[in-house]
């Protein structure tokens, strides 16, 4: 693997380039991530820390954006000054590393428990809701004409239908999801906004330093639709990691998030619509866990953690139904 990565690097940086300090972080459900330094041999100043992301989830019913489109999206986001890992190069067939791409490495913490409870992140936590509102408002202002390739995502046309179609493809009945879907059908928000939606903006995908938000990671769920989906997903109970008194990602209040978003976007936040997207988010999180278990059970992505996801779907169904019963907020 490292020989192929080295060859891929030399195709872009010249035959004198080497790779050093290779780290394989053990995380990520749908990608193999490799962090490494590229040194071109001329000087220590040429050292660049990079990240390779190789697609590991290859299936017809994948909910994820193809890597070449993720790469295009990172180019657009970077152009608009959205903090994200700068795209460097795409993997090509001759690299024999599958589909994927390489970005700059951005330092910081993603591990939710540390961000939400370590004393050294207290200052960052105090800012994250406001920073999230600001960056999401800026993201949602990017003209959708620049990301027309997202039209191919089913989520760009019928987000709930896309979730139910995926659930159907896994062949397991989930009455709690069906009941949640009926609630969503009957309370559908009346808007036709068409904005760039990150799709996975939540604690765990935010790279955070002691001074606050550094970068948005994991763009594979991007699509177009209502930007308020991103606010609702961030407030979905599963991303509070036990800090249930702080609905915005376990670090802040909805009020601070909404106020910053309204200030930058120039229009007030419809709290009822955000709630709709929180309910949608709980349903979607159930479906994503069913997906992982299905991959383990039927598609050869064997993993004890994915097996656990299948059973953990019950935990998120519980949060979904407790929210519908107005016992959880």
């Amino acid at each position: 693997m490292n020989e192929r990565l080295l060859a891929a690097v030399r195709r872009r940086f010249g035959s004198a380039a080497t790779i050093e300090s290779v780290v394989l972080p053990t995380l990520g459900g749908s990608n193999l991530t490799t962090i490494f330094d590229v040194v071109d041999g001329s000087s220590a100043a040429s050292r660049r820390r990079l990240v390779a992301r190789q697609e590991t989830y290859v299936a017809d019913n994948t909910p994820f954006l193809a890597p070449d489109r993720q790469f295009q999206l990172l180019l657009v986001a970077t152009k608009h000054g959205i903090p994200c890992p700068a795209p460097v190069f795409q993997l090509e067939p001759q690299d024999e590393l599958g589909r994927g791409y390489v970005t700059a490495f951005v330092g910081g913490e993603t591990f939710p428990k540390r961000i939400l409870t370590d004393a050294r992140f207290a200052g960052a936590r105090a800012k994250l809701a406001e920073q999230s509102g600001e960056v999401l408002a800026r993201l949602h202002a990017i003209p959708v004409t620049e990301v027309s390739f997202l039209d191919a995502q089913p989520d760009s046309h019928d987000p709930l239908g896309a979730q139910l179609a995926r659930l159907d493809s896994y062949g397991e009945a989930h009455p709690a999801v069906e009941l949640g879907a009926r609630w969503l059908v009957k309370h559908r928000p009346k808007n036709a906004r068409r904005q760039l939606v990150h799709g996975d903006y939540r604690t765990g995908n935010l790279l955070v330093s002691e001074s606050g938000l550094e970068a948005l990671l994991d763009w594979e769920c991007a699509h177009t639709g209502s930007g308020l989906e991103d606010l609702g997903w961030l407030c979905t109970r599963s991303w509070r990691f036990g800090q249930n008194h702080l609905p915005a990602g376990g670090f802040g209040s909805r009020e601070d998030l909404f106020a910053a978003y309204a200030r930058v976007s120039g229009s007030p936040v419809d709290a009822d619509e955000v709630h709709w997207w929180e309910v949608f988010g709980l349903l979607r999180w159930v479906v994503l866990n069913v997906m992982q278990a299905y991959g383990h059970h039927a598609e050869g992505r064997r993993s004890a953690a994915f097996a656990a996801c299948g059973r953990n779907a019950s935990l998120y169904e519980y949060e979904l139904l407790m929210t519908l019963a107005k016992r959880f907020d």
Binding site: P175, A176, R311, S314, L315, E317
Partner: peptide, 14 residues
Amino acid sequence: VLLDQVADSVRVVK
């Protein structure tokens, strides 16, 4: 009914 059933699942899972 579903809340009661899902709570029973959680009783097993976590």
